[in-house]
């Protein structure tokens, strides 16, 4: 029996007067990898960003409907957005490490949570880096600038940085889109390992990648959720014609 971690009900999102998400209702299960696929501009990244309220930063965005995480409506006016984002971490498309050392990048999250004890920090940093499968590559240069790492390493560092805050959900916005095949496969492996402990929602352009890493797949098209099901089903026997067209490469 799967438990539902994230659930949206009749969710609409507008950029100014332009509708970006139209009546999205979806239930994302816990400790599984859910992939969001669809052609660019279909609203999948927007949807992802609204799960930890990153869209709040954009003035013109208006959201209607309900988004539940663990049964709590995160758009309720009493919600503490800062704590919400600790619970729902995010990895961005472009790796964006701070211009600090590798250690400080990972320690950033714990530090803002008030952990300043050096031993404690070292421990958190080490575990996070290990969990992000990058420890072996950086353990000798923890205090070098994070900007000196390769693109793939930077992205895994960003994942480690997210893990250090100990979230329950990790949102990934095309985490491997700018990486070479080897780095991509490392990230995919990593996602596989992480799903035991975290609920992962990943946006991807790459349908093979979605097929490889995800348990569930949602297909978005022009702001609408067309189909959501087990990945296997979507890829072998989709219900909707549009999904089939997209997966077989007939458009998008």
């Amino acid at each position: 029996m799967k438990t539902i971690k994230i659930q949206t009900e009749n969710m609409y999102l507008h950029y100014g007067s332009k509708m970006a998400l139209n009546n999205i209702s979806i239930s994302i299960p816990e400790n599984k990898v859910t992939a969001l696929i669809g052609p660019s501009g279909c609203g999948k990244s927007t949807f992802l960003r609204s799960l930890n309220r990153m869209n709040d930063l954009i003035d013109s965005v208006k959201i209607e409907g309900n988004v539940f995480i663990d049964g709590i409506n995160i758009y309720d006016k009493n919600i503490d957005v800062v704590n919400l984002r600790k619970k729902v971490g995010m990895v961005f498309q472009k790796s964006n490490p701070f211009a600090k050392s590798i250690f400080e990048n990972v320690a950033y999250g714990p530090r803002i949570n008030g952990i300043n004890n050096k031993n404690e920090l070292t421990e958190i940093v080490e575990t996070s880096l290990q969990n992000a499968a990058i420890w072996d590559e950086v353990k000798d240069r923890l205090y070098d600038s994070a900007l000196g790492l390769s693109g793939g390493q930077q992205q895994r560092l960003c994942i480690a940085r997210t893990l250090a805050v100990n979230p329950e959900i990790i949102l990934m916005d095309e985490p491997a889109s700018a990486l070479d095949p080897i780095s991509t496969s490392k990230i995919e492996e990593l996602i596989h390992e992480l799903k035991d402990k975290y609920t992962i929602v990943i946006v991807t352009h790459n349908m093979q990648q979605a097929a490889r890493v995800s348990d569930y797949t949602a297909f978005f098209y022009i702001g609408e959720l067309i189909e959501f099901d087990k990945t296997k089903k979507i890829y072998t026997n989709p219900d909707k014609k549009q999904t089939e067209d997209y997966i077989t490469g007939r458009f998008g």
């Binding site: 995160i74 009493n78 503490d80 800062v82 704590n83 619970k87 008030g114 952990i115 958190i124 100990n166």
Partner: peptide
């Protein structure tokens, strides 16, 4: 006292914290 969020703690998101 500074509220420390220890790893593994459930984070309370339902109440706006005053900072």
């Amino acid at each position: 006292r500074k509220q420390k969020a220890m790893p593994g703690d459930k984070i309370d998101i339902t109440h706006k914290r005053f900072r």
